[in-house]
Design a protein around this nucleic acid. Structure first.
Lengths: 336, 336
DNA sequence: AGGCGCCATGACAGCCGTTTTCACCGCCAC
DNA sequence: GTGGCGGTGAAAACGGCTGTCATGGCGCCT
């Protein structure tokens, strides 16, 4: 057994044991701002003492003194949504690569709860804030800025304000999807948007309009839940109103459409060609597998972290990595 | 514009402005261990001063003095897996209800990285550790215990050690699933396990064996990836070796099986009845919808947080909430 | 009615563990 | 002999909590 968990060893303990001052120990631990003689450092001195005591520097004390915690707050709409989950994982990894810890909170699509989380994170003295919001909400970055904490939005733009935003290039993604479906001979390509035009989905809808020109009967709307998309699909098929080619704003909706089509006896891609715009891991394993314009989540995460930590080099703050088309079966490819 | 972000207001600032001592302000802010006269508290005094200065107590300083950070570390195998994502969300909520913040890290199924995360969290002086590991790894809880930090495993048990564990009742879940499939007239129920018997999946396999008695040709194995399950399914169908009723250890596998069956032209539930054992949100929207023995994620999260924070009341540390059978279509119900 | 002691408040100051400034001390080279 | 210079140590923050002590008013007892 190692010694009882009486109290963790402190820098003072190490210093005493090594017969040096706390300053020297500090210099050794972080290759300090000042040099330390190699002899002092190793030979029967600080390094040895630290090892013997199993010393682990206390980040809280360090944070108090240095006014930087090495912690970044991540406000997430909903970690159980695979799209956000995947994004969160990439953000956490990107942050970890910069030696930051990630404080995560789920806002559950509520603006109030998002606000509350920001408040708590700010009290915890985070070094920065990453906001992944589903539907806007007030610009929490303003509050963060007032506290001197940088903030960046990912995926979605706040309702107002001029905070840095990192999002995929929706125009390019939609254009790619439309072009691909047209190459399958579909001259009319419908679009399944969200219930309203807030957030990235609104931009995607706008991009679609500019790509194909709006025709009222080919703009569909429904909630993001799979069940809603499935119900809409069954209804459209029953009324004979289902267009032959469709782009969905999100994978969730696409999966719902697939489920609805299956239930209604409509074959995909035979009777309906579908392309989605997220590209979550889920999309690879639907039946049939979804063709998607995949969002470069990893690149977005890295860019967001870069913008947050290296200052918003504002010229490039909104630069967007390109979406890539992943061709699977739901568009009509490879199925003869 | 509010005042420049020169420096956040401190308790001392508030005290000075209110004409009181820092002690009094502290007492007011946390309904302190000592009472404060109502007049001092409100009337043109501390509360007013705090509001005017937009004072926000510094959690770092508080943590240093009180030796408790109000932060719990959550080590997750992979946030982009919907099962873990959903679990993470419930854990974060349960912790939030107890006024704790959640430091999240993805181990990406690597024991080394898991170890590294625990190390970092310990240095950050977390008040507790929740470990959601996919495949064991060393018992990191021992290290936490040595540092005086409580830890609890969720979903999976460590390879060794006697740390508290919260997991679903796999025996009951498997039993429920087997019973249900038998009620559909299937006397032989196969089981799709993982590549090896580590972790909860191993327990599920064992539970299945004790429920039906092992028959070699009805124990299947494959990796957890959907693609692997799909490939296995296509292969079995092609060889005419697919059993008529199957329980899968995870939703991911079940979804892969569905995809594989669809590709191979095998109808579900007509030619194959499937029941899965996770019950993630995904399972509700497959085609056909999956019947699952749903794990009570929310209850597991709450129990884990209770065990962690209220001390491992060891008698109940491993008590398990029951899994509930969600009947959908893949088992043969409701499809005629 | 007067004195004593107690309770309710409030103030002071030290402490939590680290970083970092500043001063200091030899020692070597000029 | 003096001016660096590599190395070291004491001590002051950082911001909030809390044990100890001071004070003043009140009630109770005689």
């Amino acid at each position: 057994m190692t010694k009882r968990a009486a109290r963790a060893a402190t820098l003072t303990d190490v210093a005493r044991r090594a017969g040096a001052s706390t300053a020297v120990v500090s210099y050794v631990m972080n290759n300090g701002p000042r040099p330390v003689a190699a002899a002092t450092r190793e030979r029967e001195r600080v390094l040895a003492a630290a090892a013997e005591l199993n010393y682990r520097p206390n980040r809280v004390a360090r944070a108090l003194r240095s006014r930087t915690t090495g912690v970044v707050g991540l406000v997430l709409a909903d970690a159980s949504n695979p799209y956000f989950g995947a994004l969160a994982r990439h953000i956490e990894r990107a942050l970890g690569a910069r030696d930051k810890l990630t404080l995560t909170g789920n806002a559950d699509y509520s603006a109030d709860r998002q606000q509350d989380l920001v408040e708590r994170f700010l009290a915890a003295q985070v070094d920065g804030l990453v906001i992944v919001s589903a539907d806007g909400g007030a610009d929490v970055a303003a509050e963060a800025e007032a506290a001197g904490v940088p903030a960046v939005y990912v995926h979605n733009r706040p309702a107002s304000g001029h905070s840095p935003v990192v999002s995929a290039d929706n125009d390019a993604a939609v254009h790619t999807a439309v072009t691909h479906l047209r190459s399958h001979g579909h001259d009319r390509v419908a679009f399944l948007a969200g219930p309203h035009d807030a957030g990235p989905v609104g931009h995607r809808r706008a991009a679609w309009e500019s790509a194909v020109g709006r025709t009222d009967d080919t703009l569909l709307r429904c909630a993001y839940a799979r069940a809603a998309a499935a119900a809409l699909t069954r209804d459209l098929v029953a009324r004979g109103a289902m267009p032959p080619a469709l782009i969905t704003a999100t994978d969730e909706q696409a999966i719902g459409v697939l489920a609805g089509a299956s239930a209604a006896g409509l074959s995909v891609p035979g009777g309906l060609a579908v392309v989605s715009l997220d590209g979550t891991p889920d999309s690879a394993h639907t039946a049939p597998a979804l063709t998607v314009a995949e969002q470069p989540l990893r690149a977005m995460a890295r860019r967001a972290v870069g913008v947050l930590l290296d200052g918003a080099d504002s010229a490039s703050a909104e630069a967007v990595p390109p979406a890539s088309l992943i061709v699977r079966r739901s568009c009509g490819c490879g199925s003869g």
